[in-house]
């Protein structure tokens, strides 16, 4: 049968991308008006680099949400913070130990993800509660491991993620694009990916069809944990310094990016490209607010209101109690 479906699928998805693309352009224009220089090519490069970190984090969140069963990862920010602080400690600031650092983060992120998955799928603690509790466990672990004073010496090779490759394009952007393409291929072309969609769409039907629902769902959490830990590593590489709970905002931001990107929150449907576009919208918004000198409280207020408006618009078409 026709396996040229990817391009066609892409076309149908375009519709779900329009709102974020339009919002991005609009925000760029607003930014340029409020703060001249905002839409300069070099600033756009910076914004895209910041968005890249969020986009990578969003991959994990989107995967977990797509796997269904009320799947959500509220511990994403905590895992990212942990990756950002513990990663450099493992590397001891040496570029030669960077492989060791990555391996350690994959292992720790994977274990945390596994606990999340096991708790939510096997013990059947609702994912929201399970991952919330894990967030406090992971934050506690990071605090204990760093003795409350993270001494982050970042290996020079990791700092390289912020370097320019050509023009305004930095290494991080390329990493993010590669990660998205890779994961999108995994989701669409591999057995695991296809099963994630089916399991996310209807657990009971997937179980009756003889698929191992638990393994698929737990694997999503494991992958999500690994991606979050690595995203934290990239974050600290770009930021150049670390502090406790530095990435905790990313939990909310990643969920918001997933929602804006058109991923179905009940699972079974969604694209990573959409999530990346959502990340761009959020980063643009935050940057504008910072550029015009809004304090943190107002930024959070405005972000909250915008998210609310998006939600209300999204759900105004949702099935009502009365059809």
């Amino acid at each position: 049968m026709s396996r040229n479906g990817l391009s066609l699928k892409g076309l149908t998805n375009l519709k779900t991308f329009f709102p974020s693309i339009i919002a991005s352009v609009a925000l760029l224009i607003i930014g340029q008006i409020l703060s001249p220089g905002f839409a300069d090519i070099s600033n756009i490069g910076n914004l895209l680099t910041v968005a890249s970190i969020l986009a990578i984090a969003t991959i994990g969140q989107a995967l977990i949400i797509t796997s269904g069963g009320e799947g959500i990862d509220m511990s994403l920010g905590a895992i990212m913070s942990m990756g950002a602080l513990i990663g450099p400690m493992i590397s001891k600031g040496q570029s030669g130990r960077i492989i060791l650092m990555i391996a350690a983060l994959v292992l720790i992120g994977g274990i945390i993800g596994f606990i999340n998955g096991f708790g939510s799928q096997i013990i059947k603690i609702p994912p929201l509660v399970m991952t919330l509790i894990m967030a406090s466990v992971v934050n506690g672990l990071t605090l204990g491991y760093t003795n409350g004073q993270p001494s982050v010496t970042i290996p020079p090779a990791l700092l390289g993620v912020g370097k320019r490759v050509f023009g305004p394009v930095r290494v991080l952007l390329i990493i993010a694009i590669l990660a998205i393409v890779l994961m999108e291929l995994v989701l669409r072309k591999t057995k695991f990916g296809k099963l994630v969609y089916l399991v996310g769409s209807n657990r009971n039907a997937a179980k009756l069809a003889g698929t191992n629902v638990n393994i698929v769902a737990i694997a999503s959490y494991v992958l999500g944990g690994i991606i979050a830990a690595l995203a934290g590593m990239f974050l600290v590489g770009y930021a150049g310094s670390g502090q406790l709970q530095m990435a905790n905002d990313y939990t909310l931001l990643s969920i918001a990016a997933v929602v804006i990107g058109g991923t179905k929150l009940t699972g079974g449907k969604g694209t990573l490209v959409g999530g990346a576009l959502g990340a761009i919208v959020l980063v643009l918004l935050t940057s504008i607010l910072v550029a015009i000198g809004m304090p943190a409280g107002v930024r959070s207020l405005i972000q909250g209101i915008i998210l609310l408006v998006i939600l209300v618009i999204l759900y105004i078409k949702a099935p009502k109690l009365r059809q």
């Binding site: 959500i72 929602v259 304090p295 959070s300 972000q303 909250g304 939600l311 949702a318």
Partner: peptide, 24 residues
């Protein structure tokens, strides 16, 4: 009345209420 799922709705209002607190 707007039928937004409660988790998302209160997640967004957390940002709103918390933002106002931080502003004040």
């Amino acid at each position: 009345f707007f039928r937004v799922p409660p988790l998302l709705a209160t997640f967004a209002t957390t940002s709103v209420f918390g933002g106002i607190a931080l502003w004040i």
